[in-house]
Design a binder for these strands. Sequence first.
DNA 1: ACCTGAACACCGTTCAAGT
DNA 2: ACCTGAACACCGTTCAAGT
Lengths: 228, 228
Amino acid sequence: MARDVEQAGRKQAHLKRETVVQAALNLLNDVGLEGLTMRRLADHLGVQVAALYWHFKNKQELLNAMADAMIADWGRDLPDDEDWAHRLQAGVQDLRRCLLAYRDGARVLADTYVAEENTLRCAEILCEILVQSGCPPASIFNAGWTMLYYVIGLTIEEQAFHTSVDSAYQRILAAALPSPQYPMLSMFQPYLENYDFDARFNYGLNLIIEGLRQESNKSMKEDGSAEQ
Amino acid sequence: MARDVEQAGRKQAHLKRETVVQAALNLLNDVGLEGLTMRRLADHLGVQVAALYWHFKNKQELLNAMADAMIADWGRDLPDDEDWAHRLQAGVQDLRRCLLAYRDGARVLADTYVAEENTLRCAEILCEILVQSGCPPASIFNAGWTMLYYVIGLTIEEQAFHTSVDSAYQRILAAALPSPQYPMLSMFQPYLENYDFDARFNYGLNLIIEGLRQESNKSMKEDGSAEQ
DNA sequence: ACCTGAACACCGTTCAAGT
DNA sequence: ACCTGAACACCGTTCAAGT
């Protein structure tokens, strides 16, 4: 147990915000968001619950810090490419990687409204990439939000799916189909039961990027004709 | 108070699943997902907490039923259009309407894996629409999921934004910008502070649909050449 | 069949008091 | 400055017992 080592012979653990956040993320992987309680976290740190409230105003503030820490290593290996669409794709894929690195990571990010270091850096770089599409600023921001919402939405479901113990979804689905009431769902049932989230994610991401590329092409053409 | 009326002179309230679910949805609008507790719900129904556990195995099962009930009136006014893209757009917009009808509605749906009546009907109709795009079945399902994830992701953030009391996001954002560390965010700050979620939603939805339309056109062309 | 009463094992948060 | 001890006002869930 970490706690034995931590407080051996000491009266105060001398917590740092950073170590608390890291311990919380580790605990998250063990017990999930539902099991992540202030008491359990304090236990793991060899400290009383109330001690956490000296470092964090409340649980939400801790969750905010966790969300920002989760994307600390975002964008390490972005390709140094000339094609903005390719860089964008890699960036959004890497965001999903960050969320998948921790159990319920997507829900932590979704339940959170952070504007701290890593989040801002991530937003800055995504803007940089999107600017190169040549689309107007309003579109750049809307497109950025679209990517973010899509990643969060998909990854929440993906992580909920993986941790659902009894997989009630599959049980009920199997009971309901095939049925004459749902001809489409019955006809395509094998596709409904395809749970390859990587493929699912990449398909949708590509859809969004292709939509954006179209607008980009239009914008470029208008710029070109304006210059002539 | 409803509870006074409900149990006046009676020993048993004779709850139905449906009335519990509806009371839960009403309570959700009053107190939000965080404030929605079994005890409070029991109170509103003029009943002891334990009574709820005769009708629902646990809180999650209640939430599942709430999620399905939330989209009970989905698709009422779908246009009887010949253009699949237009119907698709209307359908996804209507899904957002359903989620926005209840406080934290999107989070309720996201925390849930439902395959019950309304959900299946909704999926069936969306498939019907998507089939008319002429895309292959795998694409149809992936595209359907993409829409769903996008709506959920966006609406979670939208509803979190509206109910965030202190709006920490805007506070921290204002403190961080403008800054030479974030040239893009600083340059486009007005766009960052645009919180028109309707416009944001419709832009991204259109992006996805345009991407899908491209694949549809390709599929149609291949079909045409195959017939010749 | 449907609900009550009472308990169990937890929560987040606060705050005086210690060092 | 940083943490302990103890309390407050809650949770979800279970289960014997009532009707």
